[in-house]
Nucleic acid binder design. Structure first.
Lengths: 193, 193
DNA sequence: CCATTCGCACAACAAGCGTTACGGATATGT
DNA sequence: ACATATCCGTAACGCTTGTTGTGCGAATGG
């Protein structure tokens, strides 16, 4: 059943969401065009109609995912230490949606580590994230809510902490329910202050 | 060139090392029998001679890797807080060998997250690691080197921190050379105490 | 209402995968 | 020295993968 014309870009987004569902369920190792097509209730003919190659499909889906998580509603930030806390909470897999995107993200590390160019890309992405966090830390220090010291070091530590917590929460969701994750993060922030 | 008889198990270990090299270089997505055979300077006939199926080959290689990292020379432990520090340092990718095995480990998360049984396995493995760490933390608390409080919570936090540091170090080795990793870990331990 | 373009199913393709079967060379036991 | 078991390269199998080509029905525009 072909649909109406002119919503080309919207259809590409629908396809991407099917990619996400397959990735969240079966990882990159289980990501095949036929699996995506089945998830979409269509055939591979549809996929190749909207994307010239698998590579482009995956790139588009991941770009869109990054874009959406960047544009998703952030929790109220406040200033100083509470802004740091909010930024870190935004990373944790506290909602079903955040679990799914973190799962995809962690799964992508296999592919990323195998490709030096991609690996560099990821490294830069994390570096940028650390810089933004570093600014928030510096602001909190200026307000006296965090002791003085190299804000970059504090940011690197905090990012490590949250990243590792993400991984543990993904593997042991029962041991790391949302409230436990928040508890652990607050413990961490408490000893910093 | 067939070799002498009777070293069946030794040959299986050699094969496993080839698997590690392929995994470290190309991840699980690039792990094929032909790639392992090429790395070994042999053909797939050799592989099937020593392992009935790929699954068994991978399982053996990962088991052996876990066994070797468990049995590798640990740094002198001391007592209390210094034992905690030593245990955490043993996890970090501070040597080329540790980088390789951490790379393999992180890469395996894609496959592990896709399989509930494997995922559970990993979750239990991390839980056990946390328990051991928790004992060390409790000992340090008894010595007064760490403030009182739930040792399990401290251990979970420390494990998160180290795990995240591993990931960041793998993607940005230039930004996280060994001395920086140690620095960051010591910062973390310092604020705990 | 007709011509054209679009949307997509269907089928087939070559390449690469894990696996299997076979056979010859080499070491081993008697 | 001969028979046997081991080692492993060679080649092929069936299957899945990404990709390509064809064709038909539905929407579109004049």
């Amino acid at each position: 059943m072909p649909r109406t014309k002119g919503d080309h870009e919207a259809r590409r987004r629908e396809v991407s969401e099917a990619v996400w569902r397959v990735l969240a369920a079966h990882g990159f190792g289980g990501l095949t065009l036929r699996a995506v097509a089945a998830e979409l209730g269509a055939t591979t003919g549809l996929l190749t109609h909207y994307f010239p190659a698998k590579r482009d499909l995956v790139a588009y889906a991941l770009d869109l995912l990054a874009e959406r998580t960047a544009a998703r509603p952030r929790r109220a930030a406040g200033e100083g230490l509470s802004a740091v806390r909010a930024a870190l909470l935004d990373i944790l897999p506290l909602t079903a949606e955040a679990v799914a995107s973190n799962r995809i993200w962690v799964s992508s590390w296999d592919t990323a580590l195998a490709d030096p160019a991609l690996s560099d890309d990821y490294g830069r992405k994390y570096a940028r994230s650390r810089e933004k966090l570093s600014d928030l830390v510096a602001a909190a220090q200026r307000l006296g809510e965090l002791p003085p010291g190299d804000p970059g070091r504090v940011a690197a530590g905090a990012q490590s902490f949250v990243l590792g917590l993400v991984v543990q929460a993904l593997f042991s969701p029962a041991a790391f329910p949302p409230e436990r994750q928040v508890e652990l993060l607050d413990d961490y922030l408490a000893v910093l202050g």
